[in-house]
Amino acid sequence: MKTLKLAFAALALAPFAAPVPAAAQIVLSNPWKLVRAGEARKVGKSDLQVTAVGDWNRATERQTKESENWTQNGIGLDDLGFYAAVKKGEALFHQRDKKKDPLPKFDPAMLPTDIVEWFENSARNALGSAVFEVGAVRPAKLAGADGVEMDFSYATEGDNLERKGTARAAVIGQKLYLISFDAPKIHYYDEGLPSALAIMNTARIVK
């Protein structure tokens, strides 16, 4: 989620968001790596493997150890987030202030509905937004395991764009795996969703 990053690392993201002058690009290391269509890779060196459907740009900066963010048009226009192997007691997103602003912790005992609520609570607090609604929720498979798929919509104060998203999650071997796609409601969500779902379908656990 692009705006999650904005919320907790506002200024750090600025180099991605703002056009960089040509001269400056020479000295900056490239924060993006290409993921070619058909390439299978382990998310953040975890045991979650996904295969790219279409070409994507992978951010080399990571929110948490076993997570990755991919985009096709730029992180503000579409964001495919992979969150692998979240263990008991861990938060879904990076916590800016663990003490004063803690994010809810994962518990393998969570029911499918609890995962949905936990995702929503994590996102609301990381984004600093109460304008976040979970819509339809349905049973789904992720990496062969029974899980849940949910649609959601939200806005943040930062850019006032209406965004839509779809996330799929499952608990596998006491650990949480979640893949979330979100993009502005105008054009980008509908455009990016099919390949995002296709990538979710390729997810598997490899040892």
Binding site: P112, T113, V116, V134, G135, A136, V137, R138, P139, V148
Partner: peptide, 10 residues
């Protein structure tokens, strides 16, 4: 309800 499908499976 939005999560009726999931709840009924549970």
């Amino acid at each position: 309800a939005d999560d009726a499908l999931l709840l009924s499976s549970m």
